[in-house]
């Protein structure tokens, strides 16, 4: 997802590492990280996915003051095409990363979207399946390509069991 300004922050790396259950000190402690081969705190391999936090208009983050399709006391009735409201559901089918250069706290990345392919096939369980590929290149503040991400999403025509 295109993101203009993705600041790499030590606290965010800690929260992310905790969430994937990874206690490796290189994600938590600058002193310990200095003793490692990279020589500094680095993010876990899938961390750039959290650029979503900084993507303007990202559809899976509530917007302050606007209705949200998740429930309160009861369902809100708000329909969201990509997220299960209509029987079918949007899913993440594949995710691929290529790592080109190190990332560390203090870096500011910019994510640029590239065109990907689209294709369709019949699924065994979920009716017809529509696949969409998106390619995102992450550049650091010096214009160095640090990570290439390729994501494949699938839209099913009914609930997957």
């Amino acid at each position: 997802m295109a993101t203009e300004h993705f600041p790499i922050e030590a606290g965010h790396i800690i929260l992310f590492a905790r969430s994937v259950g990874d206690a490796n000190p290189i994600y938590y402690d600058a002193g310990a990280a200095a003793e490692t081969e990279p020589g500094h705190i680095i993010p876990p391999p899938t961390f750039v996915q959290s650029s979503a936090q900084f993507t303007e208009g990202y559809s899976l983050r509530p917007v302050i003051g606007e209705p949200w399709f998740g429930s309160g006391k009861e369902p809100t009735g708000i329909q969201r095409e990509s997220s299960g409201g209509g029987g079918g559901t949007g899913f993440h089918a594949e995710q691929h990363y290529e790592y080109h250069a190190p990332i560390q706290p203090g870096d500011v990345l910019k994510a640029v979207d590239k065109p990907g392919n689209s294709w369709e096939r019949e699924g065994r369980r979920g009716g017809s399946l529509k696949f969409n590929e998106s390619i995102t290149e992450y550049y650091n503040q010096d214009g160095v390509l640090v990570v290439t991400a390729r994501s494949v999403g699938v839209q099913t025509s009914r609930v997957v069991e």
Partner: peptide
């Protein structure tokens, strides 16, 4: 925790009422 860190707040992952009553999982 993962929703909060990654920024993917899709209710399918955290909201039992939405996921069972609306999405049908």
């Amino acid at each position: 925790q993962y929703a909060g860190a990654s920024g993917d707040y899709n209710p399918l992952h955290t909201d039992e009422i939405f996921t069972t009553k609306v999405a049908g999982y």
